[in-house]
Design a protein around this nucleic acid. Sequence first.
DNA 1: TGTTCATATAAGTATATTCTTATATAATAA
DNA 2: TTATTATATAAGAATATACTTATATGAACA
Lengths: 115, 115
Amino acid sequence: MQTNQELDIESTANVLKLLGDKTRLTMIKIMSEHECCVCEFVDLFEMSQPAISQHLRKLKDGGIVKETRRSQWIFYSLNPSSSFYSFITTVIRDLPSQQYKLDELEVQGKRICCD
Amino acid sequence: MQTNQELDIESTANVLKLLGDKTRLTMIKIMSEHECCVCEFVDLFEMSQPAISQHLRKLKDGGIVKETRRSQWIFYSLNPSSSFYSFITTVIRDLPSQQYKLDELEVQGKRICCD
DNA sequence: TGTTCATATAAGTATATTCTTATATAATAA
DNA sequence: TTATTATATAAGAATATACTTATATGAACA
């Protein structure tokens, strides 16, 4: 049920700039498959926790991800309320699934689960 | 006849970074509607000729536009041979047409035509 | 040939981006 | 309450980006 609303060039450029970083683009693809918490991202990327936090902050400031606290963890996921939600899912559609990365975390016992 | 080949995350991020600039994104949308020469871009954007030239250089280095010299002018257009061609046309599909800008140039007698 | 017009490149500058380390905040558990 | 764990923020540094002006190149034409 995609509406194909016309998008504004400037705000689209801003969203594309957010996606135009390897780390953030990978994060977005991961979140399109599963919500994910900060420490999982830290384990997935060889990068400090503040660096991860800062990338997530940019995505949140851009309104394209949302956060949910679940006890001590904060889970990030794509924000389906964003006016760019369907745009983003289209853009990342043909990127390779990152599921294997989460599977690796699982094997290492580093996957966070709040069920 | 889109093949939907799987795209590499890193090179996709690089293409998205190229699109993630208001000037370049507008240029790309314009080129998706018409080929365009450098001096037309200079007239369309309030920006120096070298600035325009440098943006076009980045797009060319990224392989997503191509150039064709026609007498003293160099016309730029989307490169249909790029592995990102269909990706890019999808990304810009719902952006507002920039045809009106070219129409304005035409009215001002600034449109370059080599027919 | 020399001049003009279109475009590219070089060099420099201001600002933005993306990290780092150090520290603050906030929830949980002993 | 205190310690621990998860996350965010602050400050600073290295690098990248996007302009500017000056100059080079290259085609067209008198």
